[in-house]
Structures are given as structure tokens and as C-alpha cells.
Amino acid sequence: MGKPKFAFYWCASCGGCEETVLDLNEKILEVVDKVDIVFWPVALDFKRKDIEVMKEGEIDVAFINGAIRTSEQEEMAKLLREKAKLVVAFGACAQLGGIPGLANFWVRSDIFDRIYKKVPTVANPEGVVPQQVVEMDGYKLTLPEFYDTVKTLDQTIPVDYYLPGCPPPPDLIMNAIETILKGELPEKGTVLAPDKALCDTCPRNETKPEKLSIKDIKRPHEVIIDPEKCFLAQGIICLGPVTRSGCGERCINANMPCRGCMGPTSEVRDQGAKAVSFIASILGVEDEEKLSEEEVQKLIDKIVDPAGTFYRFSLPASLLRRRRK
């Protein structure tokens, strides 16, 4: 038996997930030693047709990052699903839709209008927007279809495991690879990360007051943030309580609040909704009885872009998935 065959593919994402593979540093050499990478468009010159000729199940693991936004991404995901024994959704975009998923607050026409016509740096007097098919000089040029809605990977194909994060932290990646190589596979559908919220490992957890209450909401640039104290206790919205741990508290250690990239814990169906619910639970509770309707509204209004704050990484995976008409 030869070495296990791995494939990497990049759908709608920023590319950070591809780079993070390299963050394994010298460990990547161990990996390469143990596996055959049969497909990795960003690094190796294998083409779609090379996959198409493979047998079903010939690839052992396909790591797919990014959300599904175009028909090409959908086709590739389906192709890899057919050829791979295991599919791992790699990173927040594949798992939850990620930042590209915020596009679900609009529809395709809005997005094209903005990107190709209204962005201040765009000069497009003829109002050209991408077309799926263009005929020119007898040639037919095609582009993949740009879908109205961004989907998560598992809304497109069945997914076996998830590696959360934006991007997934190297130790979790390494852990996952080792687990797969050893064949000690957990239950299908498992997120390959701890199942507790970030507060569990947060170095600031002990600094929480007995009763958490937000009197006034502050954005990180508005205050000098105490580097020791719980963000929420400082009035800064931190999604730590509603986000899976395992990220290595990278943001927290850089004195920035958690933005939720690791997704929710396994018991939570809708990270954004839970986030809204928990923030609402602690917002202004101390003076609850004294606050007038207007004062409450004023307090809530200090959350700039609530949808983007609470669903930053998880809109396509939420119960509503997208803006409804």
C-alpha cells in the first residue's frame, strides 16, 4: 500500500487557509514524508482532468477551504467528494460560510452593481458586468455562474470533518492529520477542536465580575483596553462565550476581542442568534429597571453593524442563511 493521498482545494475564501498549511513550518516536511499530495492547485501543477480520471475513493482525504459561491466551486467540491474517502471542511468559510458569507445580506445584482459600478475607484462608464457567456470573434468565452447565495461546504456536499478557524490554527491541523493518519477517527461530523467555549481557555476568564453586565458599549478603537481584564467587563463586545476554543487565544493575546471565527460549540445551532441572545442578556441589566425605552435603544444602537458583528463568520450556516426578501 502506498502513502495516503491528500488533496487541497480552495473555493470562496481569502487564501489564508492555504497559507496556514505552510504555518506548520518544518512539520510540513513530516507530512509530505507520510502522504502523497495529489492535488493542490496553488502549489502543484495538477489539473482538474487529473482528478477526473481517478477512481472513486482513490483520494484518502480532501481538504477543502472556502465557501461555495460559484458553479465551478460546486463542481469541484462534488468532484472531490466523489474521489475522496474523507472530506474535511477546512476553515471557517468552508465550515460556516465565513466572511464571504456576509454577502448573503445582499443579492447578486446588488453585489455586481456595487463592485462593478459604484465603488469609488471603479471607472466603468459602459456599466460592464461579468456575463456567463460572451461571444466574440466567433469564440465563446464562459465564466462560472455566480450564485445568489453563498453556501457552506456541507450545504453542497456531505462533509466528514470540520477544521474550524480563520484560518485553522496549525496545531489543530497537525492534530487532525495525525488523527487521520493513525486511523483513530471520531464520529462523522465532528469538529476537530475542543468542544468548550473560548472563555474556558481565556486567560482573562478569572477577571469576570460576579455578575456580568455591560453598561456602555465601546469599540476597540474608542478606549485603551485593559490587557488583563475580560473584554465584556470593559464593555467591548467579545464573542468568546459563544465561540469554540482551540484557536490558541491569538486575538485575545493581541488584546483584541474574539470575533467568533471558530464557530459555535456543538450544542449551538446558530452562533449569531446565540450571540445576540447572550449580549441581550447582559446588556444594561444592572440598571434594567431604571432605563427608559429610549435609553435602551440608545445602548443597543451603539452596536455598530450588529448583523456583521454577530454573524461575521456564520451567516450561511445560520437558521435564516441569508437575508429574506
Binding site: C199, D200, N205, E210, L212, T265, S281, I282
Partner: peptide
């Protein structure tokens, strides 16, 4: 409370109208 899942964030303590919730430190964790 499923202690394997609880991160000790304390939201429940704030919410409880009956004062029935509190945070305990177990093995150094809330």
C-alpha cells in the same frame, strides 16, 4: 450544566432571576 461544555463565561449568573446560578472554580477553571 454539562460541565464538559461550560466555559464559565458567567452569562447564566447574570440572567438568573432567582439567584440560583453561580460560578465555581474547579481545578482552576470556572
Amino acid at each position: 450544566v454539562d460541565e464538559d461544555r461550560c466555559s464559565g463565561c458567567g452569562v447564566c449568573v447574570t440572567l438568573c432571576p432567582y439567584g440560583a446560578r453561580e460560578i465555581e472554580v474547579k481545578d482552576g477553571k470556572r
